[in-house]
Nucleic acid binder design. Structure first.
Lengths: 210, 210
DNA sequence: CCTACCGATCGGTAGG
DNA sequence: CCTACCGATCGGTAGG
């Protein structure tokens, strides 16, 4: 019975996951203590360890929760990925949207890539290779049809664009302002993403002859 | 007198900087202890603290050393940056080369961007804004001359390409293999960089009419 | 979900 | 450049 209004029901576990995500993204796994996380939720450290038996299992749970959300979005993405120039836009924007919706997802992935490269390699093999191969085949078909630049290296192109989408959102807050202020963060983000999509598309497709 | 062959002269300080760079890049600032660094050099922790009075000053020194090296390379870069399509290649390749020469530089910058975004914002203002403005003006001139795509957003484009160059090398070891193995790391890196340069150029310049 | 407590390790100092 | 040591904090456990 939530009589005090601060703890709604018994979603302590999900609140722990949320605060852990936020703090791991902001200060890193080693830079965050269990005390930081538990007190952000309003409980003591041993209580956290009741929900997550160790710090490392908490880290794994944080990543698993994010990947589970990605698997929810993936069907939409694959549906949009069948063919055509407009569909390409949709795939990029849908993927970017996943990370814009919560930039901590991007920061978490970049940190994990730096801290545990072998783990990220495994996740890539599991979560992105399947549909990366599909995209590569789509690119090669486009090259045969003359819609895609002949000198594109499909595998490397896909790797670069994935990397660009994730890391540019992860570090957006500080690398976004190369040439000074003058715009609101929202405006900068919007320009940033539009240019990201433009780069991805313009470096893939030949200009349409119109 | 270096009689034992392990310590050449008294470059303990520079060896500490080298090992600190390597360990901060690999495991992060919070994930690296002063003991790790000092023992990698073969001395005790208090001896490290004689050369660098605190862990935070060591971090600053590591970054300063890297930025000093960048300032040595910058003149070559600015000389090549004057005009033309071939020159654009030279600038990108020279910049990429700086980070390929030692990928720890890229990892250090990405980690710093995540850990201390305000600090990286300041460094960007100091080290990259000056010549980023020059590049933006060059892009705008190219747009007027019809050599550069009209819909390029110069500021965002520069931010994206800088971000791409650094982060793709920082996380190359794990994100490079989106579509499976089969190539040596050297071959993969070479393909990766070639595609990176192609994306940068192809998304900027209009196809030459030949 | 709590209090009380554990050994280990942290960055840093004293003193030589 | 070392040994010896400091208080603080770490992840984790006992026990309720």
């Amino acid at each position: 019975m939530p009589s005090d209004g601060s703890t709604s029901t018994s979603d302590v576990r999900s609140r722990l996951l949320r605060e852990a995500t936020r703090l791991f993204a902001a200060k890193g796994f080693e830079g965050t203590s269990l005390k930081d996380i538990s007190e952000a939720v309003g409980i003591r450290k041993p209580s956290l360890l009741y929900h997550f038996p160790s710090k490392d299992l908490l880290r794994q749970s944080v990543l698993e929760q994010m990947l589970a959300r990605w698997n929810e979005v993936l069907p939409n993405l694959l549906r949009a990925a069948t063919s055509g120039v407009g569909q390409f836009d949709a795939v990029v924007e849908e993927t970017v949207g996943f990370f814009v919706e919560d930039p901590d997802r991007a920061r978490l992935l970049v940190r994990e890539a730096l801290d545990r490269p072998a783990h990220i390699s495994r996740l890539i093999g599991e979560y992105v290779r399947p549909w990366a191969i599909i995209v590569c085949n789509y690119i090669r078909k486009g090259q045969q049809q003359g819609r895609v630049h002949a000198d594109v290296d499909p595998e490397s192109y896909v790797a670069q664009i994935i990397n660009l989408m994730i890391s540019s959102i992860a570090t957006f807050q500080c690398v976004g302002d190369v040439t000074g202020p003058g715009l609101s963060p929202q405006q900068r983000l919007s320009r940033h993403i539009r240019e990201l999509c433009r780069v991805a598309k313009s470096s893939l497709f030949l200009p349409t002859a119109n």
